[in-house]
Design a protein around this nucleic acid. Structure first.
Length: 289
DNA sequence: AAAGCACCCTGTACGC
DNA sequence: TGCGTACAGGGTGCTT
């Protein structure tokens, strides 16, 4: 599941390969993945446009072209490749841009949740996003302001891309464990010192994810531009470690559902709020299956 | 404002 | 062994 670290890895690698190259055309095999464009017109629109820069905003990959912006969201299963056009066809390459020098930029997405946009103005897509957690400007007062006064639980708030951009299920669970905060705690219940811990945890977990080039949970999961696995999965403390020991205290990791998302906690390091449902029963049921 | 759910999809994991 | 089915998961949009 590409989140901030995985998309950042793509952006850095793609910048090396794509900046200065020219798009020659495009093919669209699954039009639903291009919600803002006419699939048949895409090739003519991008033809002749050069790649100026490749960056990331939240979980979006942002490619600045001569006239337009190419924006990609990988969602659950999206991957990108730059390969010679003669490379073996990929059955899940649903949007393919042809490049100069006989190469192709392939957007590959078995589950078809990902989205590709070619737009003159990126603001409708990127404008609503919250602050970038790895920017120097993301400080404790910023986090406090983003959470300020809200009665919602921490887990849905941190997943909300308009609150903070870039975190998904994996890094939210890891950040909350690092901070020692239970996902059912509400934002307005946090003491100042807890906001500071959460800020530090978000930054350190995401920075580690970037340094380790992302999380690959399975062979079928995330791969980088050249097909290599990330290395963050070996450094996860709680995510998908239900029933295993907490690396900090040894207590058994539990799984609960918050909103609709599977959520992983150490019941000793992350003290549940008094009104929380009994996570132990939920975890026991999950283990029994 | 907050929470819940359906939807979009298909690979995988599981039950029988 | 094989078949069928439930589930996961980011984001959007709708309802409560």
């Amino acid at each position: 599941m590409p989140e901030l670290p995985e998309v950042e890895t793509y952006a850095r690698d793609l910048a090396q390969v794509l900046v200065g190259r020219t798009l020659l055309g495009a093919r669209v095999e699954w039009p639903n993945q291009l919600p803002r464009n006419t699939p048949g017109a895409l090739g003519a629109r991008v033809a002749g446009q050069a790649v100026r820069s490749v960056a990331r905003r939240g979980k979006y990959l942002v490619v600045r072209l001569s006239d337009d912006w190419l924006i990609v969201h990988l969602k659950m299963s999206g991957r990108l490749q730059v390969v010679p056009a003669a490379a073996p066809a990929n059955p899940h390459a649903h949007v393919v841009f042809t490049l100069d020098e006989g190469d192709e930029l392939r957007f590959h997405d078995p589950r078809k949740f990902g989205r590709v946009y070619v737009l003159a103005d990126p603001d409708p897509i990127l404008g609503p996003l919250g602050p970038e957690p790895l920017d120097a400007a993301f400080d404790v007062p910023t986090l406090r302001q983003r959470l300020g006064g809200r009665r919602a639980r921490l887990k849905p708030l941190l997943l909300d891309q308009t609150v903070i951009a870039g975190m998904g299920n994996i890094y939210v669970d890891e950040a909350l464990w690092t901070a020692g905060l239970h996902p059912l705690r509400t934002a307005d219940s946090l003491a100042e010192e807890e906001v500071e811990r959460l800020h530090q945890a978000i930054v350190s977990v995401l920075a580690r994810g970037v340094a380790l080039r992302g999380t690959s949970l399975s062979a079928a999961g995330y791969r980088d531009l050249t097909g290599n696995l990330g290395e963050m999965q070996g450094a996860l403390a709680v995510f998908r470690r239900t029933g295993e020991p907490c690396p900090r205290c040894g207590a058994v990791i539990e799984r609960l559902v918050v909103g609709t998302r599977g959520t992983h906690v150490c019941p000793r390091c992350q003290q549940a709020p008094a009104f929380a449902p009994r996570a132990e029963a939920v975890a026991r049921r999950a283990l029994a299956r």
